[in-house]
Design a protein around this nucleic acid. Structure first.
Lengths: 236, 236
DNA sequence: GCAAAAACTATTGTCAACAATATTGTTGAC
DNA sequence: GTCAACAATATTGTTGACAATAGTTTTTGC
């Protein structure tokens, strides 16, 4: 039994809290930790989340764990069956495609808004990064660096879009597909195709062509989806 | 002070629960009640939601109210300030426009998926209803009936799209803008323009032209948004 | 009479014990 | 040997009491 999935990231003070400073964000901290661990599959799909166990591992009362689990349920990261407990949601292929349908239109909206909201020049640095360094990272097989670069791209766009509701929805989707995105990335030929598509999107943004940028971004996600469809047995 | 906003819809058994049947959905019931009351502004924006008060009004322990408020916060219907309590979220114009941006692409996706998922003929009845009876309702000024018709249209499309994530997102948006949608409807000329647009969408769906249906639905929502922009001082 | 401090009140946040329910293990009969 | 009923255990669900915090009023010093 994998009981050591849990274990706090370094909990130095189980008995007493830090006496001085603000520690009001504790509950949120806990939730955030669980979210990322589920998103990265450090806690894998299908894992049982026992309240008592978690409470002990995190050194917090069970009520707080309970609250966190409730929040995770609302975000769709865990499923709670009455009197049976919570398990990490397992996504089947059909659900993944449905998520991608939604993601496609939301990411499309996101680049459109971003293009409209900030001056065209502000995309220059990202464009150059994607035309140069990112290309090299791929050739050297440094997928971690590439992923980091892609994440930065995504975050910049989301920030520029400046739409809190959209941000929340994309975050909610992202934490469900994070692992999947990385798995698609290592499919044969996917990374370089993706990179070309990202560059096309960025070029449109650089020109200030919001409509075209949206269209290209949507095409990009549909293309990722097609890869997933073709190689599904290797990914899942 | 409007303390009688609350008061349960008819709580006949405060001391003991129904002895026999399933009543597990209690907690969910409470949440649902609060959601609809906030969505319809029966509980108006800015209203303070006191846990103790709610607990007494609903005849449930405070912990359950607390849980419900937590859920409402996650859905963005209330804002919780630590140690200060929860107030119903008040939307300003900027936020409303941001919501409409998201709604536009999601409803667009929704009609596209719906068109792809079910046979073309299944839209025939709705199309006829919109070309005939709905028109009459408008002419007779029966906005309640018209609204009900529109709701049915929306629900059919959402159901046909068969995408739980999308459904949830649209529901979440809808409960924030429900009142607003009705206010837009009574703007001069809006209803008839809207009806024409809905018919155009339905015609495209009837033809099985998913792409065009999506485009038309998006145009429809952008048009609603423009009305809102023009008449904003009358609506808010 | 005004301002600042202190006591008070109202409200939310935390917790640990208790109850209800589901699962697992054990016993007995056929 | 297998199945069913029953007992034991583990896990979640519920509740009320207590602690902490923010807002409000009163008091006191100038």
């Amino acid at each position: 039994m994998p009981t050591k999935i849990l274990a706090m990231p370094r909990r130095t003070k189980p008995p007493k809290r830090a006496p001085g400073g603000a520690r009001a964000g504790r509950g949120l901290d806990l939730l955030q930790t669980l979210r990322t661990r589920i998103a990265t599959q450090e806690i894998p799909p299908g894992a049982k989340l026992r309240e008592h166990e978690l409470a002990e591992a995190f050194g917090v009362p069970r009520a707080r764990i309970r609250q966190a689990l409730f929040a995770l349920e609302q975000r769709g990261l865990v499923e709670r069956i009455p009197n049976r407990g919570a398990v990490v949601t397992r996504l089947d292929l059909a659900q993944i495609f449905r998520i991608y349908d939604v993601r496609e239109v939301l990411e499309g909206l996101c680049v459109r808004l971003a293009t409209q909201n900030v001056p065209n020049e502000s995309w220059q640095d990202l464009l150059e990064k994607f035309q140069g360094p990112m290309q090299e990272m791929l050739q050297q097989g440094d997928l971690d660096a590439y992923t980091a670069g892609y994440d930065a791209f995504r975050r910049r766009i989301i920030e520029a879009a400046a739409n809190p509701l959209l941000t929340e929805m994309l975050d909610s989707i992202y934490e469900k597909t994070q692992v999947l995105i990385r798995r698609i990335l290592i499919l044969p030929g996917r990374a370089s195709v993706g990179l070309r598509e990202h560059i096309a999107v960025l070029e449109a943004m650089r020109r200030g062509d919001a409509g075209e940028a949206e269209r290209l971004r949507r095409a990009n996600l549909r293309s990722a989806r097609e890869y997933l469809e073709r190689y599904q047995k290797y990914v899942l």
